[in-house]
Design a protein around this nucleic acid. Structure first.
Lengths: 138, 138
DNA sequence: ACACTACTTTAGAATCATTATAAATTATAA
DNA sequence: TTATAATTTATAATGATTCTAAAGTAGTGT
């Protein structure tokens, strides 16, 4: 649905050079209807499926971190051996299914009124993340 | 404030054999007034200060995981290269200071009404954790 | 088109937290 | 005291991530 040109412009607008590796990564991550939760490993596999031209692991790490730094991706707080990223950069929260290691989005609307009443002097709030861990019944 | 006997009984009540390593670890973790947030590395350093008798790293990992499994410790959901644990096993939440990697407790009372309105069929909720990331002003 | 510079990609090595292994030790119950 | 199962331990292995330094590429100005 989105062509290379769209992502080239998008990358430029973020202040990132639109290399062919980055455009290919963008297409895998952002050329889709739903939000996408992924690990670097999963991203690497998707890229392999899409094309035979290899992108090095180092580039995947570099790119994902560059996107995160520019606010084009979010990292999700989970204590896991791997890092999880999310293409949905809006304020929202997650279910984490411990049986399958799957993430599911939650919105503010799924909660009544999250209002933090405490603040810390001399510190500014960067984010408020809620993680609801679930497991399959059985 | 708590003697070895207290922890020996505590360990037995959890179904864990009260070895001298476990008792020493308990004293470092639980013989204190405030709740304690730590990484394995920090725990290792505290133990070194308390006594010259070495406890192997493998034992620290084994013990902390055994305690977590028995509900005597909690693991905190942070995307970090290290795992963070908490001696406060009650339902509560955290500030995480990204400038210093410090954790600070938050209680339910620090929030209005956290009520999750969504559920997932076939899955049971294991925990609901809120992580508020902060950074030093400057 | 050309050259220059800074940015980017890359393979491979290095790092570091964590887990696995397998042998020695220890707690507990009979 | 003895048998057994649990525990500790040093060490190796694993695996995600970061580092390094050389080769390649995009953007700017000429």
């Amino acid at each position: 649905m989105r062509d290379n040109y769209y992502f080239i412009e998008k990358l430029r607008s973020l202040g990132l050079r639109p290399t062919k590796q980055r455009v290919r990564i963008c297409k895998v991550l952002f050329d889709r209807n739903d939000t996408f939760h992924f690990t670097i490993y999963e991203l690497a596999n998707l890229l392999k499926l899409k094309s035979k031209e290899k992108i090095s692991l180092a580039t995947l790490y570099n790119t994902v971190h560059a996107f995160k730094k520019k606010g084009y991706l979010k990292e999700i707080s989970i204590n896991s051996d791997k890092s999880y990223f999310d293409t949905n950069i809006s304020d929202h929260h997650h279910f984490f299914n411990e049986s399958t290691n799957e993430l599911i989005d939650l919105t503010d609307k799924d909660f009544d009124n999250i209002k933090l009443k405490k603040s810390l002097p001399g510190k500014k709030i960067k984010s408020l993340e809620i993680l609801v861990k679930v497991a399959n019944n059985n």
